[in-house]
């Protein structure tokens, strides 16, 4: 990620080098980052959005047909 001085917003400077590991999506405290798959690999519009808690995480996934699934699991021992 790098800051655009003109807009004051951050952007992914090397989308080509992204591993799509979603670490930045999970780490962003404002939920402002979204991973979109390259169109060569996946169709539009699908979404995967995390909600990060202190020791658990919830993921919401929406497929290209609009089907929604939710998953919640522990990420740290209490």
């Amino acid at each position: 990620m790098v800051l655009d001085e003109n807009t004051g917003k951050a952007y992914c400077r090397s989308a080509r080098d992204c591993w799509d590991c979603m670490s930045c999506v999970k780490a962003c405290p404002h939920g402002a980052i979204e991973t979109r798959l390259p169109y060569q690999l996946g169709y539009y519009p699908a979404k995967l959005i995390p909600l990060v808690g202190s020791n658990k995480i919830s993921w919401t996934v929406v497929d290209i047909h609009g089907n929604v699934e939710r998953f919640t699991f522990k990420t740290r021992n209490d």
């Binding site: 799509d20 590991c21 979603m22 991973t35 798959l37 690999l41 996946g42 169709y43 539009y44 699908a46 979404k47 995967l48 995390p50 993921w59 996934v61 929406v62 497929d63 290209i64 089907n67």
Partner: peptide, 10 residues
């Protein structure tokens, strides 16, 4: 995680 996104995108 993005593999789940991939399945959704397919």
């Amino acid at each position: 995680p993005s593999f789940v996104l991939f399945l959704a995108a397919r």
